[in-house]
Design a binder for these strands. Structure first.
Lengths: 233, 233
DNA sequence: GAGGCTGAAACTGTATACGAAAGACAATGC
DNA sequence: GCATTGTCTTTCGTATACAGTTTCAGCCTC
């Protein structure tokens, strides 16, 4: 509620934000596959709104790297390549340890408890092989660590970053999940014990492992899915 | 030119992008000071366009952290605080060394030459005390390093990041400039000699020094300028 | 004189309308 | 048969219109 608005009208969520969320989810889930052309009229029709909210949402997903906009030609869903994926993990490998360190320095008892609760949920989801849920919990855990770190720049970068992670990870969750959650436990332990050094190295180890797995998935997964739908340029 | 469009029509720059650039510059230069309310009508009048391009530009500067948007209340220029500045430098301290490392690994002879040319220009600007120019060259150098690194994620984060750096640095350029450029020389040397380790530590040293200086400026500079213009919330 | 109420003004949120540019495709000329 | 040109459709780029909220000044009441 700390972020909530006090007035009833202030709770209003503009259409552009609803469209933004729906659009991001659709792209990450693959409903709009890489290379897919996104015309404003079609999106407006899909979401049942006018073009204006769609345009404003498009500017944001453009800035976040989910679509490429060509002047007077419209938007196209971006195609993750092995090089952009490598770039993303290189960045993540630097930011994630920072988040873990600052989280270890600042975490309260309640913060740590919330992380443990998420681990427990993830264990259940892993038992039932609920992969979409595992994927969401994965992002949620990392976002929570960043929230605990209290670093606002990390927070603002995190939304786009973890949606991209989910994007390239989607196809490989099944094999990766068990290892991933073992690493998460180590990370949470380090944060819980307030050990910045240990938290940092646990985070780095986790990202490194995730990176290797992601590259495998990208090679085997997207090349098939993206196919010839890439924009001509 | 590698980014330029080949057709004459493809060279068209949408109003939203022109507004976006003008708006960022106006905020960073302090023409719209922190706390200033930005109504869409007024911006539209200032730039001589309708509200729509303004709205789309606002969504981007919002995502970049230059303004805070309150639902049904409009946009307000963000106020850099010492905590957000610290956060920014913590992030920068992780990303800049990465950029330097990758640049050292990939720089061609021409790349290094372009960096040296910038150092030379900066030396002249320092001699003539042309502070706005120094400030712009500072950002340009770092952006060039990131470009050389070839990491697209770094590139997309860089625009917003260095505009923020310029923002908080504006008031303290005079004192900081000489030290800054000495550190830059070390950085360029390391990249030029293709030594990733050395480049990384030079970058880290540079950011650390910049961070200390920025905190001083924030304390002495913004508290005066921002004054009571902050939004009531 | 202070505090609450009321109405108007200002502003955002959203939709619609119109003009211009780019691409597709058929018709025409060689 | 192939290249070329002209038209037509699609889609973006921009402006304008309107409805719902918030804000604020002025008035009324106590």
């Amino acid at each position: 509620m700390e972020d909530g608005h006090l007035t009833i009208g202030g709770r209003h969520v503009p259409l552009r934000d609803q469209v933004l969320q729906a659009l991001r989810v659709a792209i990450v889930n693959g409903d709009y596959p890489p290379g897919q052309r996104l015309t404003e009229d079609r999106l407006a029709a899909d979401f049942g709104v006018s073009r204006n909210p769609v345009r404003e949402a498009l500017r944001v997903v453009e800035a976040e790297g989910f679509v490429v906009v060509l002047p007077r030609r419209g938007a196209v869903v971006a195609t993750p390549t092995s090089s952009t994926i490598a770039d993303m993990f290189a960045v993540r490998a630097r930011l994630e340890p920072l988040a873990a360190r600052q989280a270890a320095e600042r975490a309260t008892r309640d913060d740590v408890a919330s992380l443990h609760a998420m681990l427990e949920e993830a264990r259940k989801a892993t038992d039932t092989q609920d992969f979409p849920r595992i994927s969401r919990l994965n992002s949620a855990l990392h976002l929570r660590v960043i929230e605990i770190s209290g670093n606002r720049w990390l927070s603002s970068l995190a939304t786009a970053l973890y949606l991209h992670v989910q994007w390239v990870f989607r196809l490989g969750v099944a094999e990766r999940a068990p290892h991933s959650w073992i690493e998460h436990i180590a990370l949470v332990e380090a944060i819980g014990s307030g050990d910045p050094e240990e938290a940092e190295s646990a985070a780095l180890a986790h990202v490194s492992a995730a990176s290797s797995a992601a590259h495998e998935n990208a090679r085997t997964g997207y090349s098939r899915e993206a196919g010839s739908q890439r924009p001509h340029a």
